[in-house]
Nucleic acid binder design. Structure first.
Lengths: 304, 304
DNA sequence: TGCATCTATGCGAGCGGCTCATGGGTCCGC
DNA sequence: GCGGACCCATGAGCCGCTCGCATAGATGCA
């Protein structure tokens, strides 16, 4: 005989149900979520209905367009992501304790230049040392919530972020500064008076500290051109369209025909660091990655 | 048709399985765990076997005595507790978002005197303000891992701890100081020279800062009597057996016949605070409790 | 007014997880 | 030494949950 409500709480959300929530939120509809999960729309509909009945709360507004999370639904999805990640962690760490090795997925969110120039050598050494770790990098524009937002929302395990006065670490996250790098003036090579060129800027380049310094410099004009990202800025400068003030990391892949000039002793700097959730900070995969990150970031500080 | 491995990952630990792990670890055996879960020993055996097969790791050593967790098992149990708590949080917070009210279980670990004299008024006001919160208090001796250990192990959501130089907040936890209270000399009322009495002490009374101060006081003898807890010390002092040096909180319920004398301007103090996990710190129940805690702790600082 | 594209739902099938019953192993007392 | 009293392990069977299928309902668009 099997009693209706047996072991377990009255409201038990199994991992599959959590995955359904995340999939619906990500895909924006039941049908698309079903496709992503390798299931039918019917299964998703049944599942969501069951969850809503258990919780006594409507989680998604259905409509012609698909499904949007209600406020309660959005909160549920955020929690669901974290729970799913902790379940993954449980499995990986338990296995790792047995075998004495480090492994598991590691989702990194980074802004463009960090993903292109800072992470590759770090990930290379990480892979060499811990082949079990499956690292994935997502490039996120460092505006609004930025990479830290990805971590808060549970979409990433660790974020490479610019940690400035304008963007402190959110209270529910922890992190540390990896390197402090100066801004420099970039301009077409051989230009006699680069400071007179029009300024090329891009959206992410707006740390408040930098802005303060900018305001004190009377030679800096308002940006005449606003590019999509720092890479675009760099190529525009290379094409002779103007000059730009960029952090060192963005200049790593500078093409030929570009000259970099320092901004003097009182030049502005920015701090680049990492952020992660405290429950993930203790996992061996995150610790191993941060170790490699530190080992590579430290020399760069001196090289600047 | 239903494919063998359909939705969800190959290794999916459902909440019931997590509860089985926790129950077996807590109860020390499959039969007892089954009893606690309202299920049979057979079900527990099947479940544990299934989990071990999924993870590919032996989680419990079985024997005549029952079942003990292996190292991997212990880690799995710790993670399981946290995941279960986060699932609970998901449900409660999602419902709360809808209704706009705060609720859910709140497991508090506190050392004896805090549970007896600090918490009751706080819990009273908390219950008045948020009837939905179901607070439970566990008294934990503040030695070794102490109340913070309960939180780390996932057995409590929030701990009232003595935060001193000897016991810093563990890196995976967050917390804050609530009040700083002085130690005082307690002795039988009317005694002409209380400092000459034999010293009564107890195990928890061993902050390193206090010890430093003690070492500098030549009038303090080695403890001649060592009681089980501060309450016992207090009643022994009340019986005229000797004097003791105790923090203010332990003196709240001092019986008649006891006199309290200050220890001068350079008296030692101890800091009492709370600790919790960062993922719980953002939940509305914990925030509400901490708010009440602060509101009550603050005046006590001035009253000292 | 069809059509396209969503979600909702009734129905049936299969797997998973439970109980029941039983067996094996070990320690203890008589 | 031997039954009994604890453990856990395992096989058989049953029941419910969850999913797929088919279809109906809703809605915006041409």
């Amino acid at each position: 005989m099997q009693v209706g409500e047996w072991m377990g709480s009255a409201v038990d959300l199994v991992p599959q149900e959590l995955r359904v929530l995340v999939a619906v939120a990500d895909e924006g509809g039941f049908s698309a979520a079903g496709l992503r999960l390798g299931a039918t729309q019917s299964a998703v509909s049944h599942a969501v209905r069951g969850i809503e009945r258990k919780l006594g709360v409507v989680l998604f507004e259905r409509g012609r367009y698909g499904a949007r999370p209600t406020p309660a639904g959005a909160r549920a999805v955020t929690h669901a992501r974290r729970v799913l990640r902790m379940l993954e962690t449980l499995v990986v760490e338990t296995r790792g304790t047995q075998k004495g090795e480090v492994g598991g997925p590691l989702r990194i969110a980074a802004f463009r230049s960090a993903a292109l120039y800072l992470l590759p050598p770090v990930l290379e050494r990480l892979a060499a040392r811990h082949p079990g770790i499956e690292a994935t990098v997502t490039v996120v524009r460092e505006v609004g919530p930025g990479t830290a937002g990805e971590v808060v929302e549970g979409r990433a395990d660790l974020g490479i972020a610019t940690l400035g006065t304008s963007s402190p670490i959110p209270p529910e996250l922890i992190g540390d500064v990896l390197l402090e790098e100066p801004y420099a003036l970039v301009h077409p090579a051989g230009h006699p008076d680069p400071r007179s060129l029009p300024l090329v800027d891009w959206r992410e380049n707006c740390s408040s500290y930098t802005r303060t310094w900018w305001a004190a410099q009377d030679w800096i004009p308002a940006a005449t051109v606003r590019a999509e990202d720092d890479g675009a800025v760099l190529s525009m400068v290379g094409s002779g369209l103007g000059m730009a003030i960029m952090p060192t990391l963005s200049l790593t892949g500078a093409p030929a025909g570009i000259e970099i000039t320092g901004l003097g002793p009182d030049r502005p700097t920015r701090r680049v660091g990492y952020v992660t959730t405290p429950e993930l900070a203790t996992t061996s995969a995150v610790r191993a990655f941060v170790r490699e990150l530190r080992a590579h970031a430290k020399p760069q500080v001196r090289a600047v």
